[in-house]
Simulated scan of single mutants.
Amino acid sequence: MPRVSEAHLAARREQIIEAATRCFARNGFHQTSMQDVIREAGLSVGAFYRYFSSKDQLIRAIAEEKVGVIIATLDRLMRVEPVPPLRAVFAEILEQVDHNLGVDGPVRIAVQVWGEAAHDPTFAELIGGIYGRIRDAAVALAARVRDAGQLAPDADPAAIGAVVVGLIQGYVIQRVLTGRVDRDVYLAGIEGLTARP
């Protein structure tokens, strides 16, 4: 029997993650069965369970993959010379939020996971770890922005990082729940908050 390549395994795993993302975004976690995801992915039960054995594993994989995009963006912006203005940083992150917002988009799942985290320790641990990584990246970027003179010299990067995460989450909530917040207006508000007199 021929050996399955790593590329094939990775593509199949991604196929399952995308199918689960669509199902969870459309119907929510509790209304989506593993059979729904298997059917959406177009796989046999055996092929599916080779990659994931539970809904929690799927949710963790989706969250890690999609949040990884934001972390990668922050890491890349850390290396840009000169350091980009805060508005440009937020513009890029919020653009990615909008890109992943569609009816079947993973951003909608984020709000579901936040709700589950309020009463499920497994989800709370997942969220704590993921957003801890985003906060760490935001703190490092805030220190660099401060050192570049875009913030007051005594600005606390840890405090700024916490607010950055909150602003991103606030945008997600407004986009998912009301759909009426305009990215440019939101960015103008951030710019107004961060403007130095």
Rank of each mutant, 00 (worst) to 15 (best):
A41M: 00
V172G: 00
D75S: 10
G161V: 02
D98G: 08
R13I: 06
M78H: 15
Y131V: 04
L77Y: 09
A7I: 11
L167A: 13
T178C: 08
G129R: 10
D120S: 06
F90N: 01
V80A: 11
F123Q: 02
V67C: 13
S5K: 10
H8W: 15
A148W: 09
E6T: 13
E95W: 14
A91H: 13
T194D: 05
A19G: 00
S53M: 14
R180P: 05
L167G: 12
R175I: 04
A11I: 04
P106W: 09
Y51G: 03
L74Y: 02
G28Q: 06
A159N: 11
R12C: 01
G192M: 01
G128F: 07
A11Q: 13
R60A: 12
I134W: 03
Q35T: 14
V80W: 11
V165N: 08
A47L: 07
Y51N: 10
L151F: 15
H30T: 15
I93C: 09
A110V: 14
T194M: 15
R183H: 06
H8Y: 15
A143L: 07
S44C: 06
G102F: 09
A142G: 03
V37T: 01
E92S: 00
F123H: 13
E191A: 15
E92Q: 12
W114R: 08
I16L: 06
A158R: 09
I16K: 03
A124K: 11
I130D: 03
G179R: 08
L94Q: 06
Q96S: 08
A138E: 00
R39Q: 14
G149L: 08
I17R: 00
I17S: 00
R12A: 07
V45C: 11
N27G: 12
G192S: 06
D147A: 09
G170D: 07
I71H: 03
Q150A: 14
G132C: 05
L193M: 15
G115K: 08
A41Y: 01
I168Q: 09
I16S: 01
A195R: 15
P121E: 08
A137Q: 02
I130Y: 06
G102P: 05
I62T: 05
Q169W: 12
T122H: 13
R180G: 13
L86T: 07
I38E: 05
I190R: 02
L126P: 04
T21H: 01
F48K: 04
E116Q: 13
R76Q: 12
A20C: 05
R22C: 00
H119G: 14
Y49D: 02
R26S: 04
V67I: 13
S33Y: 04
G105K: 03
F52P: 03
F48L: 03
G68N: 02
Q169N: 14
Y171K: 03
I160W: 10
L43I: 05
A137W: 04
A25G: 01
A63K: 10
A140W: 02
V165Q: 08
S33I: 02
T178H: 11
G170V: 11
V164E: 08
E81C: 09
V83W: 02
V97F: 00
I130K: 01
A162I: 02
P82D: 03
L193D: 08
V139S: 00
N100Y: 14
R175P: 01
R13G: 01
S53R: 15
F90L: 02
V107R: 04
A47H: 00
V45Y: 15
A88Q: 14
V164K: 09
F123G: 01
I59M: 12
